Every structure is written in structure tokens, then in C-alpha cells.
Amino acid sequence: MTVRVDGVDYEFSSLEEAVRFALKMAKSKGAEVQLHNGTFHVE
């Protein structure tokens, strides 16, 4: 599972870890999280 934040990809071994990271980053940026074909994008 890959989480992309500001064009940088972060790899996670589990969906749970990836979701937690994506939500944490989105909250800190006041951004939204989108899921596309198994890849999260924080914008």
C-alpha cells in the first residue's frame, strides 16, 4: 500500500497502517484523502 503526500510516496505493509498515516497527514494539513485503485492521495 502506497500513501502519496506532496508527491512523496510512503510504503506500508498493511492497509491499516496506510490508512492511519493518510488520515493523520490529511488532518495535519487540513486536506482530504482520496483512494484511487488502492493508492491513497492526500491533497
Rank of each mutant, 00 (worst) to 15 (best):
1 M>Y: 15
1 M>C: 15
1 M>Q: 05
2 T>L: 09
2 T>M: 09
3 V>Q: 00
3 V>T: 01
3 V>K: 00
3 V>Y: 02
4 R>P: 00
4 R>L: 04
4 R>T: 11
4 R>S: 08
4 R>N: 06
4 R>F: 04
5 V>C: 14
5 V>F: 07
5 V>M: 05
5 V>D: 00
6 D>L: 05
6 D>V: 01
6 D>S: 06
7 G>E: 03
7 G>S: 03
8 V>K: 08
8 V>W: 05
8 V>G: 01
9 D>A: 08
9 D>M: 08
9 D>R: 06
9 D>Q: 06
10 Y>M: 02
10 Y>R: 01
10 Y>E: 00
11 E>A: 12
11 E>P: 08
11 E>F: 14
11 E>Y: 14
11 E>Q: 13
12 F>Y: 01
12 F>Q: 00
12 F>G: 00
12 F>C: 12
13 S>L: 08
14 S>H: 03
14 S>A: 03
14 S>F: 02
15 L>M: 12
15 L>G: 02
16 E>Q: 09
16 E>M: 08
17 E>N: 02
17 E>L: 06
18 A>D: 00
19 V>Y: 15
19 V>H: 09
19 V>M: 13
19 V>T: 04
19 V>N: 03
19 V>P: 00
20 R>A: 12
20 R>G: 04
20 R>P: 00
20 R>D: 12
21 F>K: 01
21 F>L: 02
21 F>M: 01
21 F>H: 02
22 A>V: 06
22 A>F: 08
22 A>Q: 02
22 A>K: 02
23 L>T: 12
23 L>S: 10
24 K>L: 11
24 K>D: 13
24 K>E: 14
24 K>Q: 13
25 M>F: 04
25 M>C: 15
25 M>Y: 04
26 A>W: 06
26 A>M: 08
26 A>F: 06
27 K>Y: 11
27 K>H: 10
28 S>I: 14
29 K>F: 11
29 K>P: 08
30 G>P: 04
30 G>F: 06
30 G>D: 06
30 G>A: 07
30 G>T: 06
31 A>T: 11
31 A>N: 05
31 A>D: 04
31 A>G: 11
31 A>S: 08
32 E>D: 09
32 E>V: 14
32 E>T: 14
33 V>Q: 04
33 V>T: 02
33 V>S: 03
34 Q>K: 12
34 Q>A: 09
34 Q>R: 14
35 L>M: 11
35 L>F: 14
35 L>I: 12
35 L>P: 03
35 L>K: 05
36 H>K: 10
36 H>D: 05
36 H>R: 14
36 H>G: 09
37 N>P: 03
38 G>R: 03
38 G>F: 10
38 G>N: 07
39 T>N: 12
39 T>L: 11
39 T>H: 15
40 F>P: 10
41 H>L: 14
41 H>Q: 08
41 H>R: 02
41 H>S: 04
42 V>Y: 06
42 V>H: 07
43 E>V: 15
43 E>H: 10
43 E>R: 08
43 E>A: 10
